[in-house]
Amino acid sequence: MRSVKHFIEQSWLLIAAAFCFGLLLAMTNAALKDKIEQNQIDALNNMMRGLMSEATNFEKVIDQAEIAGYKTDIYKASDNGGQIIGFAFVGTGAGFADKIKLIIAVDGTCDKFLGFDVLSSNETPLFGDRIKEDWFRAQFVGAPAGALELIKSGDTKKIDNKIVAITGATVSSQATVKIFNDHIEELKSILKEKGLID
């Protein structure tokens, strides 16, 4: 009995404080939760809109699909008339120093890539960071949705399965191409399975 009393004497402040703080956190969370979720959806939508400018509606069609060992939601983008513009998903892979997360878009029939945007990367600024550069990203827009190949030099304007690497950021360029290659076949089979493409 004494020990219980001792225990309460010593720790009542801690218990009371934990309770109050818990309440405080719950209130803050309740107040801000919707806004935070909205922010995340907005950020994702903005990126998808950047890749598929004609699309107006984005709809999550597959929740937490597992592709290349990582989980991602798959989104369907369509225009006002209900025409499917394409699909978008998050591709993850190991980069130069850390994980890279890309949001990748393919067209409605899974024949061509519509490009990618960088969701998060911790790459070295001004080196690996350069996969965000427009000329590099432009090479993926319209490229055939199959195996891509990285080359050291070539015509960056020509759209085909050959991607010209960024000088000084070869590893990050390789990582980007690898993410594309690792994901596309599995994505196709998942979409086929769900009857979303032929």
Binding site: L13, L14, A17, F21, L25, T28, L32, K35, N39, Q40
Partner: peptide
């Protein structure tokens, strides 16, 4: 129990700050 109390207090306010930043300055 002093240090435990301090960290508990600080952690609570940091979580609030974190939520606020996520809500008002997501980038």
């Amino acid at each position: 129990l002093r240090i435990l109390m301090f960290t508990l207090t600080i952690a609570t306010f940091v979580t609030i700050a974190d939520l606020a930043v996520k809500a008002f300055a997501p980038e």
